[in-house]
């Protein structure tokens, strides 16, 4: 993936660039808002990562100008501004994801990957298919190898999210945000419990296990 990072802190910038390059991405680093906007307009990036407090042009204004010049590239805010209102502001101004510093690189990477390969807007898939597992988003029914699998609403949402991100790591906090709308880190293992229940219904009795646990990161649906 081609990724633009707008980050004025040299150390953090290098940490991100190095990590992403190790994962095989092409990365450009801008250290102020104006050059970041210039790069973002013409660079054909798949994902843009913005700090909110950039010299010359702050992240929110940068994003506004970008959207005005009709650049629809997914944008993730990576910022130390972790207040309740800050997050809302970031997402309301058109950001697609919001990650607060300090962060774990695995979390950051999983979110970048999820953003970069979003299906194009306007044509939502009606059916998701991973291996022999099928999910019908209209009838909200799930089948594996032709056999109907009865899921609870939470389990359905969990599976839907995993299937949309097939072959990509989905972290615990990504699931908490998208499935439960929790913006905090619960002290109990609610994600683990629901995933293991889902796994019991989707994978048990079948030859190939589709839901994989990635140690220290999250979960991954294998195609």
């Amino acid at each position: 993936m081609k990724i633009l990072i707008a980050e004025d802190d040299v150390e953090t910038g290098e940490f991100i660039v190095q990590g992403l390059q190790e994962q095989g991405h092409v990365v450009d680093l801008a250290q102020d808002g104006v050059s970041a906007l210039d790069l973002a307009r013409h660079g054909m990036y798949e994902v843009i990562v913005l700090d909110r407090m950039l010299p010359q042009l702050d992240g929110l204004s940068l994003l506004k100008s970008l959207r005005q010049s009709n650049v629809q590239t997914p944008v993730m805010f990576l910022t130390a501004m972790g207040g309740i209102a800050d997050r809302v502001d970031g997402l309301e101004s058109g950001g697609d994801d919001y990650l607060v510093k300090p962060f774990a690189f695995s979390e950051f990477h999983a979110r970048i990957c999820s953003l970069g390969r979003r299906p194009p807007l306007g044509e939502p898939a009606m059916k998701l298919k991973v291996a022999d597992l099928e999910l019908d988003q209209i009838s909200r029914s799930v089948r594996r190898a032709g056999k109907v699998i009865d899921l609870q609403p939470t389990e359905y949402r969990l599976l839907e999210h995993l299937m949309k991100n097939v072959d990509r790591i989905v972290t615990r906090s990504m699931l908490l945000e998208s499935v439960w709308q929790f913006n905090f880190d619960p002290k109990t293992n609610i994600v683990e419990t629901h995933v293991s229940r889902l796994r019991a219904k989707v994978d048990r009795g079948f030859e190939k296990e589709l839901i994989l646990t990635v140690r220290g990161s999250g979960y991954k649906m294998l195609s």
């Binding site: 150390e11 953090t12 940490f15 190095q18 990590g19 130390a80 510093k101 300090p102 774990a104 690189f105």
Partner: peptide
């Protein structure tokens, strides 16, 4: 303390990787 701790975290992660 969040900023320096964040940096320590980054260094440790780089080391672990």
């Amino acid at each position: 303390l969040r900023t320096p701790l964040g940096r320590i975290r980054q260094k440790l992660e780089t080391l672990a990787r």
